[in-house]
Structures are given as structure tokens and as C-alpha cells.
Simulated assay, not measured.
Amino acid sequence: MSDNDDVYLSPEEQLGEDAPAEEGEEGEEADKTSEKVSPQIQVFPLNKEIIIEGLSLLCQTGKKLEHAFIKLDLKDRALTDIIAISSYIHIRFLDLSNNYISDLSPLASMTHLLWLKVDRNSMKSFKEQPLSEFTFLQWLSVASNQIVDMEGLVGPSIETLILSGNSIQKINGLRNADFANLVILELRGNQLETTSGFDLPNLRKLYLAQNFIKRLEGLEKLERLTTLHLRDNQLETLEGLCPEMKSLQYLNIRGNAIAEGDALRSLHFLTSSLKTLVIAENPVVDAVPYRQTVLILLPQLERIDKEPVTLTERTEA
């Protein structure tokens, strides 16, 4: 793993499209979102010609010899009204990125959706949106919108959920009963102050960089978590890490406010699993011999920051 070990193979990459934004780009995208809504910008209603232009990937529908296009690309179309899309019920992959969409109700008939991207739009809430109709949806990205809470968000089949670059202040509604298959969750660049609220025992990767997190709380339910990314927050201590996190292999706390060696003591709860710790850009790095301090707590570590742990370091610790 590297210091930027937070890139995974998304359905976008599987379909040969652009890879997701690298760390640090979310803020720029959010700025673009706030800037693009302007009285001078002309918006266009969705029509059949635009839809036909964006259709691709012809597949059999399951009804004898019937075929239909199942992929629709409508990004960068300056759209506000997508009512014309409602009759295309066979769509499985839909990209609505970089428009002015605030209402997804025209998608209610698309019950075959597997993949949905609504990045850089004008979404403010999940309430009264047709997400409960998408029983097969596996990948959902609503990054860089204006979402402030998660009320109304459901996804029984969702495996990857990306909500980066919004204004979410609190984790609520993320229960295992509604997200039993959720494996990857992206919440970078929001306004979270705590990690409380995650009831997702099947979650594997959690990205919380660039928030305002001061406290680690409620992590005991993340029993299968392997990656926890907390870069650029406001942590002064790691109190809150717990023995229930028995699968955690990668922890990134770079760019926080940890100043003393004692603030790292909770790392010992991760002795049985943690392999990589990224701790650079914390005051503690300059205050104490931090690599040795960390190795005393976690003798099994394979890498600290960008450097592998040497046998000499391990022996001395």
C-alpha cells in the first residue's frame, strides 16, 4: 500500500471510463459545483435526440430475442429536467454527472439500474427520491452535490457508496438492515466531527479524509473494516480505536493534530491486524522518535508512512 492507497477499481474503470478523482480533488469539484449555477448559463431540457446520442451497450433484455441499450451517458448536458428518461426502463448504467439535477423521481421506472452516478449536480436531499425502487443498484455516487444529511438514503444491494464533497454533518441512517452489502463508503470532504453512527459490520473500506473529525466513536461495529482513511482531520488522540476492529490492516491519520506519544496508545488494540500506518504531518512526528514509539505498540507493522519497517528498527523497539 502507498500513502494514496485509496483508489479501487470502480465500475467506471471496468467500463473503460475515467478513474475516480484522486485525493485532494474533491474540494475543487465542490467549488465547481457551487460556481456553475449561474443565471448566464443556458440549461436545456432532455429530449429524445440527446438520449439516443448517449445510448450504448446493446444487450438482450430477457424477453425472447428482444434487445435494448442498457448504458446511458448524459453527463455535461446542462440538464435540469430529466422526465424524458422515464420510458427507458432497461437502463442499467446511468451517468448524469455535471448537470443541474435536483430530482431523480423520473428514474423510478428504471428498476434494473446497477450503476448510477449523479456527481456535481444540485441534489439537496435523499427524501422522496426513488432509491427504494433500485433493488439491484450496486454502485451509487452522489459526490459534490448539496446533501446535508442521509435521511431517505437506502440501498439493500449497494456495494460502493460515494458521498464525497457534500455538506453532511452527521452519520445517520447507515444501518446494516438497509445496507447489508455495503463494502466501500466514501465520505471525504464533508463536515463530520465524529465517526459515530456507523452500524455496518460488513463494511471493508471507509474514507473520511478532509472532514472536521475530532473524536473517534462508534467504531466497535466495524468488525470487518480493513481500511480506515482519516487524513486531514482534527484528531488529537486515537482514543476510540477498539479491539473489535480486528480486521483493520491500513490506517491513515496523516495531517491531524496528534502531538504526543501518549495519544497513540490506543493503537495497541490493533496489534493482531494492522500492517500499514500513515502518520506523517502530525506534530508528534517532530516531538518524539515516533517510529520507535509506534513499533513498541505495534511490533507487527510492515510499513510506517512511505518507509517499510526494517529488521533493525523492529529489534531496537
Rank of each mutant, 00 (worst) to 15 (best):
S102P: 04
K170Y: 10
D95G: 05
I147C: 02
E133I: 00
H67G: 10
T227E: 02
E260P: 00
G240P: 14
D305R: 05
P20H: 06
V278T: 02
I70P: 00
L65T: 14
L192V: 04
G54M: 02
S125I: 03
N176E: 12
T310H: 08
G173N: 09
C242K: 06
Q138F: 00
F69P: 10
F179V: 01
P308E: 07
S56K: 11
R215C: 11
L46C: 07
E13I: 15
L235Y: 05
R77L: 08
K306D: 12
V37W: 04
H268D: 13
L174T: 07
E186A: 01
D73A: 06
L267A: 06
I91M: 08
K71Y: 09
R291Q: 12
L174G: 08
V285Q: 07
L222I: 10
G54V: 01
V148G: 00
S157N: 04
M150W: 00
S86K: 15
F69Y: 15
E12H: 15
L251N: 06
L131G: 08
R265N: 15
V154S: 03
N256P: 03
G218S: 11
M245F: 08
P106M: 10
L182T: 00
E29H: 13
N176R: 07
G218E: 05
E22K: 13
D262W: 05
V285R: 06
G261V: 08
L216M: 13
L65V: 12
K32S: 04
L140P: 02
L274S: 05
Q191C: 10
I162F: 07
L270R: 05
V309N: 03
V37M: 08
L116S: 03
L107W: 05
T80I: 15
S122R: 14
K306A: 12
P156E: 10
L174D: 07
P20E: 05
S122A: 13
G173Q: 11
L182I: 00
D6G: 00
L264W: 02
I258H: 03
